[in-house]
Simulated scan of single mutants.
Amino acid sequence: MLVAMAAIVLWAGGYAVLCAAKPFAPCRRCRGLGKIERFGKPRMCPRCHGRRLRLRIGRRAHNAWRRTHQAGTR
């Protein structure tokens, strides 16, 4: 039990460092290419709009927490 808890804490800490160092990751739908093939034609990715990157879930949560904190302390 203690080993599992330590592993979870270690994983969460590593993910937090990753979100701070590299907040963007390749788009899951186009795999970072910016284009997908639909009906035999290359088109701009509808998820990332051709930007090739997406904001990580942890960074999105951090940004939401920071906005809420700043709005509450004004």
Rank of each mutant, 00 (worst) to 15 (best):
1 M>Y: 06
2 L>A: 14
3 V>A: 15
3 V>R: 14
3 V>M: 11
4 A>D: 10
5 M>D: 09
5 M>N: 09
5 M>A: 14
6 A>L: 13
6 A>E: 11
7 A>I: 09
8 I>P: 02
9 V>D: 05
11 W>Q: 08
11 W>V: 12
11 W>K: 09
12 A>K: 07
12 A>V: 05
14 G>Y: 05
14 G>F: 04
14 G>I: 03
15 Y>P: 00
15 Y>S: 15
16 A>R: 07
16 A>V: 06
16 A>F: 07
17 V>D: 03
18 L>F: 12
18 L>T: 09
18 L>C: 09
19 C>N: 07
19 C>V: 06
20 A>L: 15
20 A>T: 10
21 A>H: 05
21 A>N: 05
22 K>E: 12
22 K>R: 15
23 P>G: 00
24 F>D: 03
26 P>Q: 05
26 P>C: 03
27 C>K: 01
28 R>D: 09
28 R>T: 10
28 R>P: 04
28 R>H: 10
29 R>T: 06
29 R>S: 05
30 C>L: 02
31 R>Q: 10
31 R>Y: 04
31 R>S: 04
32 G>C: 01
33 L>I: 03
33 L>H: 04
33 L>T: 13
34 G>M: 00
35 K>E: 08
36 I>L: 05
36 I>A: 02
36 I>W: 01
38 R>D: 04
38 R>H: 08
38 R>P: 01
38 R>Q: 12
40 G>R: 02
41 K>R: 13
41 K>Y: 05
42 P>F: 07
42 P>Q: 13
42 P>R: 11
42 P>V: 04
42 P>D: 09
43 R>P: 01
43 R>D: 02
43 R>Y: 02
44 M>Y: 03
44 M>P: 02
44 M>C: 08
44 M>E: 09
45 C>M: 00
47 R>F: 03
47 R>H: 07
47 R>A: 06
47 R>G: 01
48 C>D: 00
48 C>P: 02
48 C>G: 00
50 G>D: 02
50 G>F: 00
50 G>H: 00
52 R>H: 07
53 L>K: 08
53 L>E: 06
55 L>Q: 08
55 L>R: 10
55 L>D: 04
56 R>K: 09
56 R>Y: 01
56 R>P: 01
57 I>D: 14
57 I>H: 13
57 I>V: 15
57 I>W: 13
58 G>C: 06
58 G>A: 12
60 R>N: 12
60 R>H: 12
60 R>D: 13
61 A>V: 11
62 H>I: 11
62 H>V: 12
63 N>S: 13
63 N>C: 11
64 A>Q: 10
64 A>E: 11
65 W>I: 11
65 W>G: 07
65 W>T: 10
66 R>V: 13
67 R>G: 03
67 R>A: 11
68 T>H: 14
69 H>Q: 14
70 Q>R: 15
70 Q>G: 05
70 Q>N: 15
71 A>M: 08
72 G>W: 10
72 G>T: 11
72 G>A: 15
72 G>P: 02
73 T>Q: 14
73 T>D: 07
